[in-house]
Structure formats: C-alpha cells, structure tokens
Design a protein around this nucleic acid. Sequence first.
DNA 1: GCAAAAATGATAGTAATACTATTATATTTG
DNA 2: CAAATATAATAGTATTACTATCATTTTTGC
Lengths: 244, 244
Amino acid sequence: MIVILLYLRIKFFSMISLLSNLKIAVPDKIFIKDPESSDLGKRIIEHSILLIDDIGFDSFTFKKLGAQIGSNESSIYRYFESKHKLLLYLTSWYWAWIEYQMVFATHNVADENDQLLRAIDVVTRTIKEDVAFTHINEIVLNRIIINEYSKSYLTKEVDSENKEGYFVVYKRVIRRLSDIISHVNPDYEFPSSLASTIVEGALHQHFLKAHFSSITDCGKDVTPTEFFISLTQKVLKTTTDESR
Amino acid sequence: MIVILLYLRIKFFSMISLLSNLKIAVPDKIFIKDPESSDLGKRIIEHSILLIDDIGFDSFTFKKLGAQIGSNESSIYRYFESKHKLLLYLTSWYWAWIEYQMVFATHNVADENDQLLRAIDVVTRTIKEDVAFTHINEIVLNRIIINEYSKSYLTKEVDSENKEGYFVVYKRVIRRLSDIISHVNPDYEFPSSLASTIVEGALHQHFLKAHFSSITDCGKDVTPTEFFISLTQKVLKTTTDESR
DNA sequence: GCAAAAATGATAGTAATACTATTATATTTG
DNA sequence: CAAATATAATAGTATTACTATCATTTTTGC
C-alpha cells in the first residue's frame, strides 16, 4: 500500500514530491543530534540558511540564530558543536541533493554524451525554483554554497576532517562526473581534474558574474553551464590528428 | 648613471636581481602606513607570511604576530587596520609579482601560442625557488594563496572593497591572460571565463593534490600546468568542422 | 494519568578576539 | 638639541565561541 502510494506520487508529482519523501543523507558525525529529528532542529536548518545568506557566514553566530528562531543559543549547541560543523552539514546536504539530481537526470539516458551534458547542467546551473516541500530553501542554499563553500575546507583541519568523512558527498559527486567523462572519452587523461574544475569552476563563475563581471563572460547572455559544456565538449572531442 | 647601473644589473643578474631593484606595487589604500617604508613594516610582512602559513589565517592574530617579531600588537595596527587588510596586501603583492613574471615571460616571444603556454605556466606552476633577495618568501606565500586567497574576496564587503580597488591586480592578471587567449584564437567566445578558470582552477588543483587526491589527476606525475595547458590547447584548437 | 526521561530555556561564566585609546619611551631628523 | 615621529606598554571594550549548571517544559512509556 505504501509502495503503491509512493509510486503514484512519483508518477504524479515527479521529482519535487519524490524529494519530500526521501531524506537526504548527511554523514552523521557532522551533527551531535540529527536536526531532521525535531521541530527545533528543522528551524535551526531553515533559519541558519536564511541568516547566513543575509549576514554572511563570518558574521553568523548561534546567538543571532537563536534570536531569529526565538530559541536559545545553548539549545543550538545541542545540535551542532560549532558553526563550522553547521556549515559542513549544509554543504553536505547540498551536495547530496545535487548528487541525487545528477543520478536522476542521467538515469536511463542511453547516449553517454547526453548523460554528460545533463550532469554538467545539474552541477553548473542556477537554482531557480525552490522545491518548497521542505524547510530548506534551495535557491538560498545555492547562494551560500557559491559564497561560503570554500571556507568549509580551506582550514588547517581539512585532513583530519576529511578522514572523518565530512567531505564524502562532495567527492562522490565529483567522482560520478569523472566517471561519466571517462565513459564519453576513455582516452582522456585527466577526467578527475576536469570534473573538479567544472564543479568548483562553476561556483566561481557564478561568483564572478555577481561581483567581478569584468573577468568573466558569464552574465546576462552566457551562463556558466554554456561555458562549461562548450569547454568540456571541446576537451573531449577526439580529433584524429591528435598531434604529438 | 643610475640608469646605466640599473641596465647593467638587469643584463647581468637577470630577473632575480631585477626584482630586488623594482618595487612591487600594491594599491596604497590597503595599508595605513607602507610596510616597505620601515624595518618594522618589513618584519611584519615577512613574519605574517610565515605565521599564516604555520597556523592558518583563521587562527592568525596581530597579537601572535607581535610576539613572533618582538613587537607590539598596537604597532602592527599602525600599518594595517585589520588582519583582513593584511591578507589583501599579501595577495595583491603576490598577484603583482605573478603579473610581473607573466609580462617578463611573454615579452618578445613572437609566436602567440608560445606566449600563451608561457603565461599559463606562470599562473599554474608550483613556486619552487625563493627569490631570496627580499624579506618575502615566495614559496610560502604561494602556499598561502592556495589555502587562503578565496577568503580575501568571499566576504560581504567584496563589492565595496572592489570599488576601492583592492582587487585590481588580480583582475589585471586575468585580463592579460584573457587577451593572450583572444590573440591565439580570436573566435573563441569565452576568453575571460577561460582565463579566470585557469587561474582559480590551478590554485584549486594544487589544493586538491595536497588534501583531496582522489578527485584530481594532479600529483606526482601530472602537474596542474600540464592539465591546464592540455585543456586550453584543446579548447582553442579551431576545428574546421565546427558543427552547428 | 502520571512518573521518569528527554528536550529546551535561562543564566552565568571564561578565555580569546579584534579592536581603540592613552600614555610613555625610544629614535630620527632638521 | 628640540621637535617630530615611531614604537612600546598598558588598559579597556564589546563580541565571540564556547562550557556548565540548573530550571522548566514536553514527550513517552507504562
């Protein structure tokens, strides 16, 4: 019965509804208490996204967040041991959501280059619609990723945190893209570097578009998606006269 | 007389000595008092580089720096109004130094593609030799750029600081590279995005190499330089059957 | 329906940060 | 050598990033 209902919802409401039934999996060492497990937890996530977007991660504090949600600083500390861990949670959630879309978008697509185009689209596009079935506003979260993601790994603790598995989701997204690249052109020598360059580069181009428009071609007419699709197609095109 | 001496030094000691005669120009709104103008100033720069590399920018404070150089916190504040401004100083200095090398490396090179290869080499290579004529250790500074550069612009104040001219040097480096790209292939549609992707992407690949080796091909055998040269050559190669 | 457990809230406290301000002491320079 | 300038020392402030404790509310298991 549940299975049938689920199936119908998938058919009828497509991905948007599917997501409301699935739980995005975040490595559980990141939090002390799962924010998805309570109302307060969900409010913490919902409003931390809005507040970080508003004042920036550097100015964001648990005290300010507490004020926003009418809760206490000390209660937030029962979910996350630091604001850095909260950022790791948000970014992991984001990449898990991207991963899900990538799998969904490429599934059952026969042509491998077509798969690649769809995968690149998923990781480079601007999020324009809030799924709105959850407490997480993906449009705003996407902005946070553009503006703050680097700060989650540009720390002295990267290596130990990496060992703890805090970046697995991100790495998995890149490896999936890398695998698709290798399928399209098995002779290409740098699939992982190309994949990581696309993912990181797309965030960067979005940032430049908003703040340093003179050093990007992305803007009104050109999207990061177009730029990276063009680039990837050219890089992977096997020319017969592959000189030296 | 001075002119003749300078000329001789250039001829005799080449770039290393040239740099010891030239002063790298940093936008002067970044500092309160020019650190190049005094002994204390130079010690601030020299040891801030070492200390940031050692403990990371996030843990770095003027108090700790003062302790290292046997000086007082309050004296450092007379040179820079905040540690953020000091980071802007270091990064501007770095990009000015890179710009200088780029101009030097491409000057008088007849073949335009050769110019491009040299320019890419300058912005993507690992710095392996300290020029050692100044108080600035370029090897260590390069590591700081890899680990901390993004933090200089991923702030809520980017737009106002950009207006103040704090990022001009960086943007000029990218524009120079973009211009060279356009000369090699005037029909290529995204020279600025390609240039910014190479510069930022190279820093990222260096970072991945050190901390997330599973999502890059760069490592022992492959350098970011090789990856980006290969990529750029493929992207700019004009194929006659440019389909659609 | 109630007791125990769990969750949340309120308050206080700490060491460190990112500064500003003031005054004292060197050092430079005209 | 006096005046100006640079540096050092000290103190103070508001905020941050927490930890700890205790009180209150909510949930749950029987």
